[in-house]
Amino acid sequence: MSDVLKKISEPTLRVVGYVVLVVMCMYILTPLLWLLLTAFDPEGGPYLKLPKSITLDNFVMLFIGKPIKGRAGAAHPFYMNVWLKNSFFIASVVLVIIIITASMAAYALSRLDFTGKSLLMTFILLIGFMPSMAKILPLFKLCLMFGFIDNLFGVAVVIASSLLPTQIWILKGFFDSIPRELEEQAWVCGCGYLSTLMRVVLPVAGPGIAVIALLSFLGAWGSFTIPLILIRSEDLYPVSLGIASVFIHNPGEIGLAVDYGPLCALSIVYALPSLAIYYLTRKYLMQIKVGKMEVR
């Protein structure tokens, strides 16, 4: 391998690199290109083509809740604004819960030294490893007890608990890289533990907070299984369930008898908040340090 690579000169390597890059970008972008084109196409279908004319009807349809004249529309009406509102509610509650609980836990894990700490870390990681499908029924029963069925707040709590392990690990990595002296300085200046966390550690760990904010937002915004189990009434559907209610008739029959225009428009509207959050936090994404994974 090394001999072969040595013989390849720098320019050749560069060319090969670019070719692979282009292929990769095509793999990534072609499906998304279809999404973008079809969203503005009055008569789009499950194939890539340039629209003959451009229309915003697909987007309008999502929000007025009924098909536009002359268009087939979907089997079920859209309640896009309701779904978006629900999704936003869930995502923001998850965000708040995760940032508070994960940062407190990660801070304690980062700064406390006690026997069995690595055991606790492994436990936290593994606890999230139980397949979610296997937990459905107990989870349902539990949520029934807590009154979390048909309760957006309850859904958010459950989602937060499922996202928590990874976020704690990531945040601990960030906290570990903050010099202890900063906190000790704050203590000497009279700061209590909570106020040290708020005034010094969190601001310094800003990138870490941004990363877990992004990851937990993405997780909550896109979550499908947990709302599927816990939400019964249609006016509490988040977008993920909304899509399914409109476009999936039976499992395994995706893509049959669907108006692709609104589907793509919906997908784009659905993806926009995620993209916005990514845009805000993109600077910090490359600084993730999970647990002990910083280079040793």
Binding site: T101, M104, A108, I127, M130, A134, K135, L142
Partner: peptide
Amino acid sequence: ILASFLVPALVLLLIFQLIPTIWT
């Protein structure tokens, strides 16, 4: 005080992750 910072996260994990797991 510092150890008590672990409590909220652990409570969430215990109730909504560990208990369903054991139940399963």
